[in-house]
Design a protein around this nucleic acid. Structure first.
Length: 253
DNA sequence: TTCCGGCCGG
DNA sequence: CCGGCGGGAA
């Protein structure tokens, strides 16, 4: 299967999933810092456990840079314990805050004002930040146009023959970014280009007002990842897939 | 008891 | 490239 055909398939997956389930409002409880916390806590961990830990952090008033900076490490460990791997995650959250303090004067605004490639490399240099965590922070906390190619993404496209086990993370991410549309800095997308790609923002979507300044590409990456998470959780299960009723079933060959 | 799922260090 | 890291829910 050619690269162009794979990109076309991924665009078709997005349209089928969006038609079936609509926008996902994925990662909804957002301050930016809460998104970052979630990106760390969800490493190799189910979202239910993360939600419990985040609720405990909110109750303890720990969902801010200032709070993580000053909280005792052992206390933070105890609060986030339901998320699992709580010792390394507590230390990594401390590491992130120290990084923002020293490099960006404690300002997430300054952090996310950096160009995407440089910021991505800086995040990847942090202990506890790999590709998926970095990209989740970039996309969901910073509104940078980066696709989060997580384990669900890989599982789905491998089972559909679009990628293999040898496909590297960045290859997978770039495949989705090419398929779903990258930002073109030289000139704005035209109406005819939007028609070619089939993108139709829904003016009555409840998400549109709260996401008013989000670029179309970021919107698509956000929705697509949320849709893929839904597929992975409910249909493309790890052990045995349940293809019956899956919006992507028709795309299996 | 099994299932689930990122990153690091040796 | 493997073992370790930890919990909640089925």
């Amino acid at each position: 299967m050619t690269s162009a055909e794979n990109q076309h398939s991924i665009r078709a997956y997005y349209e089928a999933l969006y038609r079936a389930w609509g926008p996902q409002h994925w990662w909804p409880a957002r301050t930016r810092f809460e998104v970052i916390v979630g990106a760390y806590l969800t490493q190799n961990t189910s979202w239910k456990n993360v939600e419990i830990a985040v609720r405990r952090m909110r109750t303890a008033h720990l969902l801010s840079i200032d709070a993580i900076r000053t909280i005792l490490l052992k206390k933070l460990e105890a609060v986030i314990r339901p998320a699992g791997y709580y010792r390394q995650k507590a230390e990594r959250l401390k590491t992130f805050v120290a990084f923002v303090d020293h490099r960006y004067e404690g300002s997430l605004h300054r952090l996310f004002a950096q160009p995407t490639p440089q910021l991505r490399e800086e995040l990847l240099s942090l202990n506890g930040v790999g590709p998926e965590t970095a990209d989740s922070i970039l996309l969901y906390a910073g509104q940078h146009p980066v696709f989060v190619a997580d384990a669900y993404t890989r599982r789905i496209v491998e089972r559909h023959g679009i990628a293999s086990a040898e496909t590297k993370y960045d290859e997978l991410r770039e495949l989705f970014e090419r398929a779903l549309g990258v930002v073109k800095p030289a000139k704005l997308r035209t109406e005819s280009q939007e028609q070619e790609t089939g993108f139709r923002p829904n003016p009555h979507s409840p998400s549109r007002m709260s996401q008013a300044r989000r670029s179309p590409v970021v919107q698509i990456y956000n929705d697509m990842h949320g849709l893929i998470v839904a597929v992975g959780k409910h249909y493309c299960l790890k052990a045995t897939p349940r293809c019956e009723g899956c919006p992507l079933q028709a795309f299996l060959f």
